[in-house]
């Protein structure tokens, strides 16, 4: 029981950065924009947060810095992919390559430094519930925040006018435009939100998960999150479950080693990526179903008619 609780708690921690970035991308994709730059935005968020935390000593300021770094990167992407109607695949790739390079450059002087990251805070009463208390209510503030954001996004998408407008833009931008919606503004907001969330996910890595900075510390999480959104068929509740499942996959090697398994760490480190491919296979073999769930205008630039 003790072991299971520990594993579940570690799973939630490992899943939180995925949850944050995937929720952001979910909103972005629901507006019809596919941003492949998650990895770049996360890395910029991670490095910005770490550098600010180290220089100011304030984790709160650091988190804001991360979010703004992510938004800044997202706006660059929006400039290319939304305003200039560039190919979204290429623009997203560019953002990832640019973010990887820029974050390594900014963080070059900070490799090897360390900070005091986010501590766990037990929520009174709730944290005394057996198992669930330790797993969900004895975590750091960013984990709680990820759950709040999840609830907010769920309500927004399915129970608010704003969510309806967002989905309208993603499904049929021409119809949305004809109804007087500003398609490009909605897309800008969605992309910026995605960027902020990716920045926050980066902050989680460099301020809570492993409070330090190393080049490429996201290790493909931005890409896994993109697969996660497909896996979740663009629904937030499935993103939540998926993120935690992927979290479990990424700590599996620790668990197995804890149980006395002797397998190569390098081989076990492949697991999250193998699982991602398997998930994609499971979900994509039926193209009709994928098409049914995908926001209809996903990946297509929109130019308002004149």
């Amino acid at each position: 029981m003790e072991l299971l609780t520990n594993i579940l708690a570690a799973m939630v921690v490992a899943g939180t950065p995925l949850l944050l970035v995937a929720l952001g991308e979910l909103i972005c994709e629901r507006s019809g924009v596919l941003n492949l730059g998650q990895e770049g935005m996360m890395l910029m968020g991670a490095v910005a947060g770490f550098v600010v935390a180290l220089t100011t000593g304030s984790l709160a300021v650091a988190v804001f810095a991360s979010v703004f770094a992510g938004i800044g990167m997202a706006l660059l992407f929006a400039l290319m992919a939304v305003t200039l109607a560039a190919n979204q695949y290429a623009a997203g790739l560019a953002l990832t390559i640019f973010g990887t390079g820029l974050s390594a450059f900014v963080g070059a002087g900070f490799v090897g430094e360390s900070i005091d990251g986010f501590e766990r805070v037990a929520i009174p009463l709730l944290s005394d519930i057996p198992v669930i208390g330790r797993v969900l209510f004895h975590q750091d503030l960013l984990v709680y925040f990820s759950l709040v954001v999840f609830a907010g996004i769920w309500l927004f998408l399915h129970h608010s006018r704003g969510g309806l407008l967002l989905r309208a833009v993603g499904e049929d931008p021409d119809a949305a435009n004809a109804n007087g919606l500003k398609v490009l503004v909605v897309r800008y907001l969605a992309v910026a939100f995605g960027g902020g969330m990716a920045g926050l996910a980066g902050a989680y890595l460099s301020l809570a998960y492993t409070p330090m900075w190393t080049e490429n510390m996201t290790a493909g999480r931005g890409w896994i999150a993109l697969a996660l959104v497909v896996f979740a068929t663009w629904r937030p509740e499935r993103v939540l479950i998926g993120a935690w499942l992927f979290g479990a996959a990424s700590i599996l090697h620790l668990v197995l080693q804890g149980l006395g398994w002797r397998a190569s760490t390098e081989l076990l480190a492949m697991l999250p990526y193998v699982v991602t491919i398997l998930m994609l296979v499971l979900l994509s073999w039926n193209p009709a179903r994928t098409r049914l769930n995908t926001p209809l205008s996903l990946g297509q630039p929109y130019r308002p008619g004149r």
Binding site: M80, A91, L95, F98, G101, L102, A104, F105
Partner: peptide
């Protein structure tokens, strides 16, 4: 990496 990223970014723009 920074130079490469900038180059690609400007190119697409």
């Amino acid at each position: 990496g920074l130079f490469q990223g900038l180059l690609l970014f400007y190119l697409l723009t």
